[in-house]
């Protein structure tokens, strides 16, 4: 009896949602959490019977998943290098830039540690976090710090930008370098802008994967993202138009 119930549960889990709906799996950089949530809703509205499944994580982690055969139709990476690795591995034919993002100094709302600029990253009395160098926001941060000659007193290299933002928001960390899109609309954190001359931008790339199970839907999703409506959503979430 228990055996039968267990098998039934497994079958149910395996089949659920797969019958009437078409699924589009979008693997997206975790900095796109808010933006793609809205894009997906808008896309679903236009395509009744389609459900967009967002698989969010560090771009580099998603890249590893895709290269190891994880099912996904669309890949959105937070930088060019990560996308190139996917294209070089013949997992996608080509990619398009759909947004830029810039780094800001994130502090808890109200800026309790009174952070004013990049040089505060070197303060040893503050808890400072950066993205791990393996993820795009970490590479961008390294570039920014290098140009400015700031040697940060880092306490942790977080595996992805969302966990860094969360720790700053919760007060476990005092400051860190995150994307502007991560602080836009957040009640927990706010951004302190960087000087103009180091305001490097990341290029966000999107590609339809060769092994997509829904290539038509995937193409439609990318087209929608690049349409004025899609761009508007992305911009509203703190990113910049391509």
């Amino acid at each position: 009896m228990i055996w039968r119930v267990a098998v039934g549960a497994l079958l149910l889990a395996a089949c659920s949602g797969g019958e009437s709906e078409r699924q589009l799996v979008v693997s997206a950089a975790s900095s796109l959490t808010n933006a793609f949530g809205e894009v997906a809703s808008a896309f679903e509205e236009r395509h009744p019977g389609v459900s967009v499944v967002l698989n969010l994580g560090a771009s580099s982690a998603l890249r590893e998943q895709i290269l190891n055969g994880a099912p996904a139709d669309v890949f959105a990476s937070a930088d060019e290098a990560t996308m190139d690795a996917v294209i070089n591995a013949s997992a996608a034919a080509g990619s398009e830039v759909f947004a830029h993002n810039r780094l800001v100094i994130a502090v808890a709302s109200g800026n309790p540690a009174d952070v004013s600029g990049l040089e505060d990253l070197a303060r040893t009395d503050l808890f400072v976090g950066l993205c791990a160098p393996s993820v795009p926001c970490g590479r961008l941060a390294a570039l920014v710090l290098d140009t400015q000659g700031v040697v940060p007193a880092v306490d942790t290299y977080e595996p992805n930008v969302r966990s860094l933002v969360t720790k700053i928001g919760n007060g476990d960390l005092d400051m860190g370098l995150v994307y502007r899109s991560d602080v836009t609309g957040s009640s927990m954190v706010e951004g302190v802008g960087l000087p103009e001359d180091v305001d490097f931008a990341n290029d966000y790339h999107i590609a339809v994967l060769d092994r997509a199970r829904e290539p038509d839907l995937a193409t439609a999703f990318v087209e929608f993202l690049l349409s004025p409506e899609g761009v508007a959503i992305v911009v509203a979430n703190g990113l910049e138009a391509p």
């Binding site: 791990a132 306490d155 942790t156 290299y157 977080e158 595996p159």
Partner: peptide, 10 residues
């Protein structure tokens, strides 16, 4: 990694 963070050497 969640509680203690990730810093080489520490």
């Amino acid at each position: 990694i969640t509680f203690a963070g990730n810093l080489q050497g520490r």
